[in-house]
Amino acid sequence: MIDKSKLRGADIITSVLFFLLGVWIISGALKMPLRESYAGVNSVWYVSPALLPLIIGGAIILLSISIFVHGLRNGGIASVKAMWAARKDIKLLSDANIRYASVLIPLFALVYMNLTKVDFFLNIVLFLSFTITVFHLDNPRIFRKTLYFYTAEMAVLLVLFVFGIDKAVNGIFAYSIDILVLIMIVALIILISRLIKSEGNVDYKKKFRQAMLMSFITPLFIVPIFRYMLRIPLPNEGGIVNLMSMIYYALR
């Protein structure tokens, strides 16, 4: 939790947002059938689907006002002003923000972009080999460079997917995108190992090996367990998963 002085300022802001949410809920509820009958159910006010949303919206508005007033009385305005004044001191690429971005960018790239487009196995390797390595090594320089490189790779994929190039290349040669991602993983690994060499820290080598081991072993367990034991179709079954399936069917 952030400290009390800032908290009241934050309360002012969140309470306004909650107030707006409450208003939106009520305005949405008023558009619902209130008294006319719907779907064969004779409607009266107490049957209306708007009943609870109206109560909820009202309660959120009242509570947000109460939080707002509490914030006002306890130095909220001063705190908001202080925050506004401090905005220039916030650097976009500070170490803390780089750490934050290193959690969020891979998560967003994995869930919103790659999950349905890239082979599931490779997806996990890509995600883990970046995330585990940077956080396990925990060196600011490696952090920064690796994140920039990773983000650039993801940007390339984004362009491919947005313009639908992935479908075109996959049409010419199946698994083209999977192979591209595989190359990206290799590039990432080469970059990190070079960075580690230039740092010259012996401990890093060991940590990197651990990170790599974790990145490859995890999908090696997860994929067979979910795909063949629990029989859950994976979000994207590309090159590697199909290869595993081939082996599985041949062995069975």
């Binding site: 949410l21 619902m32 689907p49 949303p53 919206g57 309660a59 509570l63 947000s64 939080i67 509490h70």
Partner: peptide, 28 residues
């Protein structure tokens, strides 16, 4: 205390999303 109540109501609101269970009217 208000903060506990308001997140509770936020949860209730999230539960309202979707077809309502009685008249299958789509909400939010």
């Amino acid at each position: 205390v208000q903060k506990g109540w308001i997140t509770g109501f936020l949860g209730l609101f999230l539960a309202m999303v979707g077809r309502d269970p009685l008249q299958v009217y789509p909400r939010f």
